[in-house]
Design a protein around this nucleic acid. Structure first.
Lengths: 116, 116
DNA sequence: TTGACATATGCCGATATCAGTATATTATCG
DNA sequence: CGATAATATACTGATATCGGCATATGTCAA
């Protein structure tokens, strides 16, 4: 009972450098595994494995083209990230203002308070 | 030579459920560790530890208020996330269109890759 | 100072994760 | 059918990560 969940969520998937690089590489269009291997300069098995993770969380999809496999970003898969980040951002913006930041940064140095 | 980097980046920090919950909880304003412990229903040490990670990547900051410590979201810390996701999204949108998705989804049906 | 409260840190064990290597699967072509 | 190219999976070892518990640090108040 130590760890939490498998890599099976979008946030975790994007938490890895290699996978973000893959997404970036696919941002401009489809690519085969071999092309990605070359562009990222990583081993083929690793690229395949990372692609698998991305596929499992629906951030990418693929189709067969001859002997190759063309991967592409699956836009709807980005929704959870966009929604969470958007929601967080707007909520924070609604509840904080410049004055807050200003005051807080001032108070960060020293402060006295007595109350609960 | 196995693992990559320490948890010291924003994407990794946000990859964890507990930390996202913390950010969500702080979205509406400052809170003390105790309040967060109660809201999230997690042990105090864990909350503190997760807050530490968030602090290290500059997603939250804190100030002392008496015996308490008030944590808050540090908005600039969100920038890397916003930029990466925004850039990815617009790039993808520029290079894909509805027709692409339509065709790809069609072809996806016709030929298939096995899975495991 | 002492004592109580709030928060942080240290240690541990279980498990996940990643890179690397070798091998299996799948598809195309002759 | 067999050979070969492209990709996927299996296994391994090193390390990171997380949760749980105990304890340390720090802050106020009397």
């Amino acid at each position: 009972m130590s760890r939490a969940a498998t890599t099976a969520d979008v946030f975790n998937a994007v938490g890895d450098d290699a996978r973000r690089e893959l997404l970036d590489a696919l941002a401009t269009g489809e690519a085969t595994v071999g092309e990605l291997v070359e562009r990222l300069g990583r081993d083929q098995p690793q690229v395949s494995k990372h692609l698998r993770v991305l596929r499992e969380v629906d951030l990418v999809r693929c189709r067969n083209a001859g002997r190759h496999r063309l991967y592409r970003v699956h836009r709807p898969g980005l929704a959870p990230l966009q929604h969470w980040l958007g929601h967080l951002t707007t909520t924070v913006n609604e509840h904080y203002d410049r004055l807050d930041d200003y005051l807080h940064d001032l108070q960060r140095e020293s402060l006295h308070g007595s109350e609960n």
